Simulated assay, not measured.
Amino acid sequence: MESKPTTPADAAQIQAALTDPRRLAAVRDTGLLDTPPEEVFDRLTRLAAKLTGAPVTFVSLLDADRDFYKSAYGLGTTRQLSGRTFCHYPLVSGQALILEDVTQLPVFRDVPTVNSLGIRAYAGIPLRTESGEVLGSFCAVDFKPKQWTEQDVEIISELAHSAMREIRLRMALQDASALNQQLQAQIQKVDALNRALSEMATTDALTGVANRRAFDHSLQLELAIVERRGTPLSLLMLDVDHFKRINDTYGHEAGDKVLVAIAQLLGGCARVIDVVARVGGEEFAVILPNTDAGGAHEVAERMRSAVARSNWLGQPTTVSIGAATLHDKEDAASLYARADAALYAAKTAGRDRVAMA
């Protein structure tokens, strides 16, 4: 049987079809151009050759200026051809092209592969997407005139459908992979946002140390550890001496800089396991896990001395510190109240000193 267009496409029609942007996008979206041979496609072309007796069978994808062969049985190492080929005609017509002797019509006789490869018979079925874009053809050729039977054409058509199903599957997997990557990117953005929000919720915006919420939560956690392990726990309460005078004399911006600098000094004096927090305007608290009264006094003196040695405003800035060590069965509120009372005692006694509860 033989099927050919009543008016074969001319060069202008072929070029327009080859370079159509939507069609080219569909071809490139397959992700198959310039990829190595794969057994799933090679199996189809081998089967086509075996069942039809054609010496050459191939899966052709049509790029703008070349035919790329995803699978080519009987073509040796040839993976692509440039210039006009028989596969261009099914591209334009959208229909199967079955030629028993290509030399019988001048338009087909002049196709370059007639001379370069010696092609005499051709059977090609378009590989069409669901949206109607022709990606290429599933083809069989012979080097001598061949009478293609209805069974031959049915076989090539069925194998063309199988090739197209595989292409659709690849595209679906690519889409799924791309969607998964987008989803992962969105998850990472959400995670980053959640981390930022969590940090905002637990970090003092000015000084960067823990805020009152984080302090309360950390103190409860440390109390739970003490209950399980029986380890000591101490708490320091610190207040910047005469802070209102600093604001009134130098301005609130200078006062903020003092608070930031003090927070940094406290963090430098603290251990990794300690929690430094800003719990009020010019008030700080430091949770000292696994620290008894002697250790708490030592840390408090180190912090007081570090601040006193500073000279941010051209004159000393000092802090008063109250320290308390957890009693047996004592809760957070009681520990906090005793440390705060010790702080008040330090300020009443003249400031720039440590008082123990």
Rank of each mutant, 00 (worst) to 15 (best):
residue 214 A to D: 08
residue 240 V to P: 08
residue 72 A to M: 00
residue 305 S to Y: 11
residue 48 A to R: 06
residue 286 V to D: 14
residue 160 A to I: 03
residue 79 R to C: 00
residue 174 Q to P: 00
residue 278 R to A: 09
residue 187 I to E: 01
residue 33 L to C: 04
residue 309 R to E: 12
residue 6 T to N: 12
residue 348 T to V: 08
residue 3 S to V: 13
residue 269 C to G: 14
residue 78 T to H: 01
residue 272 V to R: 14
residue 23 R to Q: 09
residue 43 R to H: 12
residue 58 F to N: 10
residue 201 A to H: 05
residue 213 R to L: 08
residue 322 G to M: 07
residue 238 L to T: 10
residue 142 D to S: 14
residue 296 A to Q: 11
residue 59 V to I: 15
residue 343 L to R: 05
residue 333 A to G: 08
residue 55 P to D: 09
residue 208 G to Y: 08
residue 195 R to S: 10
residue 211 N to W: 07
residue 48 A to K: 08
residue 185 A to W: 01
residue 292 D to C: 10
residue 316 P to F: 07
residue 274 D to G: 08
residue 193 L to C: 06
residue 97 L to C: 05
residue 270 A to E: 03
residue 188 Q to M: 03
residue 260 V to W: 02
residue 349 A to H: 10
residue 230 G to W: 04
residue 48 A to I: 05
residue 226 V to S: 04
residue 317 T to Y: 03
residue 113 T to G: 01
residue 175 D to N: 14
residue 125 I to S: 12
residue 322 G to I: 05
residue 151 Q to R: 14
residue 227 E to T: 13
residue 310 S to Q: 15
residue 73 Y to R: 11
residue 27 V to A: 10
residue 149 T to I: 04
residue 222 E to I: 01
residue 180 N to L: 13
residue 62 L to P: 04
residue 30 T to P: 06
residue 264 Q to I: 02
residue 94 G to P: 03
residue 172 A to R: 13
residue 37 P to K: 05
residue 21 P to K: 06
residue 181 Q to M: 04
residue 150 E to N: 15
residue 326 L to P: 01
residue 229 R to H: 14
residue 20 D to M: 02
residue 157 S to N: 11
residue 301 E to A: 07
residue 315 Q to Y: 05
residue 57 T to V: 11
residue 90 P to L: 01
residue 133 E to Y: 12
residue 32 L to N: 08
residue 49 A to I: 00
residue 26 A to W: 09
residue 23 R to G: 08
residue 6 T to V: 14
residue 208 G to A: 09
residue 126 P to A: 08
residue 286 V to K: 12
residue 6 T to R: 13
residue 214 A to L: 12
residue 92 V to F: 00
residue 83 G to S: 03
residue 100 E to W: 00
residue 130 E to Y: 04
residue 317 T to L: 08
residue 291 T to H: 11
residue 281 G to M: 10
residue 105 L to N: 09
residue 69 Y to P: 00
residue 249 T to Y: 02
residue 177 S to M: 09
residue 173 L to F: 04
residue 13 Q to I: 02
residue 193 L to K: 14
residue 246 I to S: 02
residue 28 R to E: 15
residue 254 A to G: 04
residue 257 K to M: 12
residue 121 A to F: 01
residue 239 D to R: 10
residue 8 P to N: 11
residue 298 E to D: 15
residue 293 A to F: 00
